[in-house]
Write a protein that binds this DNA or RNA. Structure first.
Lengths: 219, 219
DNA sequence: TCCTTTCCGTTGTAAATACAACCGAACTGT
DNA sequence: ACAGTTCGGTTGTATTTACAACGGAAAGGA
């Protein structure tokens, strides 16, 4: 577990907390580390969750398959990101989505009750972690609203443009790399892959952008 | 402000806190009460926000209009609900949406810094309010994921069915009342109103449901 | 090298949607 | 009673999409 302390230090959850203090807090927060092989399910739809999770190593996708086999990708989790925090409220039901490992991954599990219940003076930074958690979840909230904005567009072209231009804004460059391949991007935007592929080429022909694999350039 | 203390007591934010304690906390939380006329903007896209808001009276919509005038309704705010909490993080940019009063309304504004910074012993329940806030925002997070689930459906019929059946589950009855008229429901699900109206009638003809105005019965 | 798998572009067709336009019913305020 | 407005259902057409199927390029393993 100790090997990942430097990783934890750079997460939003432990922002402002030193490595020694993080080490001291781990037991206080009920931390456990679990590893997953590529393709493993970290969380499954329908499960109940009592932990807040932080990705220490690897890559994950949040996704959902419906009865008809249509896959919908809700988002992408990179190293240091927090997840699961939306399902730990007492009245929250079971998980609505699967979380799948795209690579071999390592995940920290923190007991919710111990995270949000500020303990004795032993943990000087516990209050700060609670605030960090609040900011992190509110950030996730904003990114969900952002995604709703993409999906509210009527046409595939508008969805692509709003997504790509937002990414360009985030990455602060017209050259952007996205964490999805074609199928995954289609699942993320909830459109058909082939139709999207087709539309991308039309947009290129119209001089809106250039691309190669998962790298795009907006014009 | 005092007239709304009983309302506050029943909100998720102050769950478990008595009226006297709420009264005592108001100044500690930097509470202000503002009133709005029907049609007024409570919040505007692009503004910066430093407060967490609670609706004391009235009804609100969270919505967004794009360049082409297409309106997208992100959600509905009823009495006692918290909003604005996603935009108070230090790095959060400006608001992505408008919040509009559908009726004459009254809104509590709480200074974020004072809410999430636990103060002296004077506020016995401050810690509880912070936890309540965490649960409330995580609940909102789940409802956003829920909405993403509706919107990820490919056809209008599937969107309607997933939305209505989820409402039936929430309201625990096949007879449900929704807070939207036709145009607003179409804006909420991001589909064309006339196409949706058409589809609703087809679904009725197919024996899936019955409806009158904003009241539906699932069969 | 060969085989397999993955990825992505292309095409054609059937289905669904957006959009505009129109209509009648219900409600509003004067 | 009247005009104006909102609301919701209907229709037709042009556009867009989903779906299935195919093929070539690239990557990976034996």
């Amino acid at each position: 577990m100790k090997e990942f302390i430097p990783v934890l230090k750079r997460t939003k959850l432990f922002a402002g907390v030193g490595e020694d203090d993080i080490t001291a807090m781990l037991s206080c927060l009920g931390a456990r580390l679990r590893t997953f092989k590529k393709g493993d399910y970290v969380l499954r739809q329908g499960e109940h969750l009592g932990d807040i999770l932080v990705l220490a190593e690897g890559k994950l996708h949040i996704q959902r398959d419906d009865y008809w086999g249509n896959r919908s990708i809700l988002g992408h989790i990179g190293i240091g990101e927090i997840f699961g925090e939306a399902y730990v409220a007492p009245e929250s039901g079971t998980l609505l989505n699967d979380v799948v490992a795209l690579e071999d991954s390592a995940v920290f599990f923190f007991d919710v009750k111990r995270v949000i219940t500020t303990c004795s003076s032993a943990c000087r930074f516990h209050t700060m972690v609670v605030q960090n958690l609040f900011f992190a979840i509110s950030e996730k909230n904003r990114s969900l609203v952002q995604k709703l904005d993409y999906m509210s567009r009527r046409t595939t072209r508008e969805k692509l443009l709003s997504y790509l231009s937002e990414e360009a804004k985030k990455q602060n460059s017209p050259y952007i790399t996205i964490p999805y391949n074609r199928q995954q991007l289609a699942d993320y935007l909830s459109v058909d892959r082939s139709a999207m592929s087709n539309e991308l080429c039309k947009m290129r022909d119209d001089g809106l952008l250039e691309f190669e694999k998962n790298r795009f350039k907006l014009l």
